[in-house]
Design a binder for these strands. Structure first.
Length: 553
RNA sequence: GAGCGCGUAGCUCAAUCGGUAGAGCAUCUGACUUUUAAUCAGGGGGUCGUGGGUUCGAGUCCCACCGCGCUCACCA
């Protein structure tokens, strides 16, 4: 499959990153520009939000589609812009040293101390967390700090320009506000020279030529004249966004649907400044398990760290790829399915034509170079992909959060496999084990045994003790049958091959073992389970069950 | 009030350019170590929310309506 075929398929691909990239192609054709700037926004008043990751991941997909469409003839950059000069509005609930932070309300986030005591400021801490994650995923981006940009003078020309167009900006903003707010609204927010608080005060006047605004401290009635440049002032949110687009020449920025009105207003402001607003689209928001909007202040839904505890970054990337225009529940229970969907896409990719490949999320997740799927050799049946769902089952039947126990099962399935030869499968095993430990194991409901059941378990334990250490699954299985056969409750004369002298064992017997020992209604072939889990370990498990420790836990 | 999204199998959801509606789970049947599933094979289950329109052909495109939900209108 040639590069030409790839290009041809890309030109017409309906995959949304290509649809978006084609908007930019039009833009470049119109303006003749030789580079394109992508921007993603981040508000560091809280820990990095999973939506922020989504925005970077999705923007990266558009960027890559654009690069394929242009053969890299147009340079691209991705700016991760942190709005870290914003004033701290309220103290987040999920941080230490809240009192200390409380004393800094209203100051720029870069001037609020780090509640974790690790960085120069709260913003620096959260910025570092964001960068750490973006780096760990390998995103190609440039980090930008609003505070640094303001202070460096990089925004000065645009700020002075906006001051010149003050009336035009007000004409756009004021109708969008309620009367009482409109009466005091100023797009320019001076930083109080003494308290360092970002002041939301009405302007007493401004001097476009001098580049200053005049305002009054409501507490002292003292009047100040502050330059709009050099970081002495910042802008209100919507004018700020517009100014940034204008000053940096941002060509593409997507945002959530909660910002639809903001995009409209900011776009009008950019035009009033004589610029062109970026292309982009409004994606749907993520919902928590109850269908509520995920927000960093509420701390609902999933965090990046939580997802990465149970699944790979690639699977999270897949979640972000799929249907950005549809609201999706983002909660723990979508993880297994998303992981297996990802593995499935990886597996079908090599067999596809370019047209399908470009619609395959794996292509977008891996910037056009998805790795080969990791498959196990399974006897004559050939290659098999081990799914997350299967590993969860394994963990459940083994009732184990130990990767080694799962590998024991896997090696029986595919003897040549080891964690060293299958590193990605090993990672998957670790994720599955973590998911099992935190979401499946707590839901187990152990049943206490009655007299007959307890006696049966005693017998099983004794019988196991009498078996040789290296007893096979088969030997153990037959030993179990002999126990069950001797107990009237579990005799089954209708079983295939059963005789009155040698009755079969009903499935009740095994159901009892699962319910009492594994806390589940179903389970593995028990002989195999014991062989892998270990005879002594199984006896210990029985002992715990008889003491009532499993029911209690 | 304004702007969106979603209605497809019992459940959760797919369905690329408009071309015979699919998957997973659940359920049922069968095979297998004398019975257990981490196995395999197979079956049933649908008026694609409703009604129009375009088309040779509509889950898909257009219009209207119904239902559910979200967002914005203070801040970002």
């Amino acid at each position: 499959m040639s590069q030409a075929a790839l290009r041809e398929a890309a030109e017409v691909s309906k995959a949304w990153p290509f649809e978006e990239a084609r908007k930019l192609i039009q833009r470049v054709k119109r303006t003749g520009q030789k580079s394109v700037l992508f921007e993603t926004g981040y508000g560091p008043s809280g820990l990095p939000h999973i939506g922020t990751f989504g925005e970077v991941a999705r923007t990266t997909m558009v960027r890559h589609a654009f690069r394929v469409l242009t053969d890299d003839a147009i340079a691209t950059r991705l700016l991760a812009f942190s709005d870290d000069m914003d004033g701290l509005r309220k103290t987040p609930d999920n941080i230490p040293n809240r009192e200390r932070i409380q004393a800094n309300l209203g100051k720029p986030l870069t001037e609020v101390p780090d509640p974790f005591g690790e960085f120069d400021s709260f913003a620096a801490h959260n910025n570092a967390r964001l960068r750490g994650f973006l780096d760990s995923f390998g995103f190609d981006y440039e980090f930008a700090s609003s505070t640094a940009y303001y202070k460096s003078g990089r925004f000065d020309a645009a700020l002075l320009h906006m001051l010149e167009r003050f009336d035009a900006v007000q004409k756009i903003m004021l109708p969008s506000l309620r009367e009482e707010r409109a009466a005091t609204y100023s797009p320019f927010l001076p930083i109080h020279p003494r308290t360092r608080i970002v002041m939301q005060v009405p302007l007493a006047g401004y001097d476009a030529e001098a580049g200053t605004i005049r305002w009054r401290d409501p507490a002292t009635d003292e009047e100040f004249e502050t330059p709009v440049t050099g970081g002495a002032c910042k802008l209100q949110w919507k004018p700020d966004w517009a100014m940034r687009w204008y000053a940096l020449g941002v060509d593409y920025e997507m945002s959530g649907k909660d910002l639809i009105d903001s995009v409209k207003l900011s776009s009008q402001i950019v035009r009033a400044l004589g610029g062109t607003p970026p292309d982009g689209f409004n994606y749907e928001l993520f919902l928590d398990e109850k269908g509520q909007k995920i927000s960093k202040s509420k701390g609902n839904g999933l965090t990046i760290d939580e997802w990465l505890t149970y699944a790979s970054p690639e699977s999270l990337s897949l979640f972000m790829y799929q249907r950005p225009s549809a609201a999706k529940r983002l909660y723990f229970d979508v993880i297994p399915r998303t992981v297996d969907d990802y593995l499935g896409f990886l597996e079908t990719y090599p067999r596809q034509e370019w047209k399908e490949r470009l619609g395959n999320p794996a292509w977008h997740i891996h910037s056009g170079e998805p790795p080969a799927a990791e498959t196990l050799e399974h006897g004559a049946e050939g290659q098999t992909t081990v799914s997350f769902a299967m590993l969860l089952n394994l963990a459940a039947v083994a009732n184990s959060d130990s990767p080694a126990v799962l590998w024991g099962f896997l090696r029986r399935y595919a003897p040549s496999a080891t964690p060293e030869t299958y590193p990605r499968l090993d990672r998957l095993v670790r994720y599955a084990v973590a998911y099992f430990r935190d979401f499946v194991a707590p839901k187990k409901r152990y049943r206490a045994g009655d007299e007959i059941e307890r006696a049966a378990l005693e017998s099983v334990s004794a019988k196991l003790a009498a078996l040789p250490a290296g007893a096979s699954a088969e030997e153990i299985q037959h030993a179990l049958y002999d126990i069950g056969r001797a107990i009237p409750r579990y005799q089954d004369l209708n079983a295939k091959g059963a005789t009155p002298e040698r009755p079969g064992v009903s499935s009740e017997f095994f159901a009892m073992l699962y319910a009492v020992l594994l806390g589940d209604e179903r389970g593995p072939r028990f002989g195999s389970f014991v062989a892998l889990y270990g005879i002594e370990e199984t006896r210990a498990l029985i002992a715990k069950a008889l003491k009532g420790e499993l029911v209690a836990a």
